[in-house]
Simulated assay, not measured.
Amino acid sequence: MAANCSWEAPSGGRNKVCPGPGEVPELQGRGFLTMEQLALLPPPAVMNYIFLLLGLCGLVGNGLVLWFFGFSIKSSPFSVYFLHLAGADGSYLLSKAVLSALNTGGFLGAFADYVRAVCRLLGLCAFLAGVSLLPAVSLERCLSVLFPTWYWRRRPRRLSAVVATLLWLLALLVTGVHNYFCVFLSRQASEVACGHMDVFLGILLFLVCCPLMVLPCLALILHVECRARRRQRSAKLNHVVLAMVAVFLVSSIYLGIDWFLFWVFQIPAPFPEYVTDLCICINSSAKPVVYFLAGRDKSQRLWEPLRVVFQRALRDGPELGEAGGGTPNTVTMEMQAAPGYPS
Rank of each mutant, 00 (worst) to 15 (best):
S160K: 04
S160W: 02
A161S: 09
V162A: 12
A164L: 05
A164F: 05
T165V: 06
T165A: 14
W168T: 09
V174A: 08
V177A: 12
H178G: 00
H178A: 10
N179L: 08
Y180D: 04
V183L: 14
F184G: 03
R187A: 11
A189L: 15
A189H: 14
S190H: 04
S190I: 00
E191P: 05
V192R: 15
V192Q: 14
A193K: 11
G195T: 04
G195A: 04
G195M: 05
H196R: 15
H196V: 15
M197T: 07
M197C: 11
M197Y: 02
M197L: 11
D198I: 08
V199S: 02
V199A: 10
V199P: 02
F200H: 04
F200P: 07
L201F: 07
G202R: 01
I203Y: 10
I203W: 10
L204M: 10
F206K: 09
F206V: 04
F206Q: 03
L207N: 08
C209V: 06
C209N: 08
C209L: 09
C210M: 13
P211H: 09
L212W: 06
L215T: 01
P216S: 02
P216H: 01
C217R: 09
C217A: 05
A219W: 08
A219P: 07
A219H: 00
L220V: 02
L220P: 01
I221M: 07
I221R: 01
L222I: 01
H223E: 11
R227C: 07
A228Q: 10
A228E: 11
R229D: 15
R229T: 08
R230I: 07
Q232P: 00
Q232D: 13
S234V: 15
A235Q: 02
K236C: 13
L237M: 10
N238H: 06
N238Q: 11
V240M: 08
V241R: 03
L242W: 06
A243C: 13
M244V: 15
V245Y: 06
V245R: 05
A246H: 08
V250D: 00
S251R: 09
S252H: 13
S252D: 10
I253G: 13
Y254M: 15
Y254G: 15
G256N: 14
I257P: 09
F260D: 06
F260R: 05
L261H: 09
L261D: 04
F262T: 08
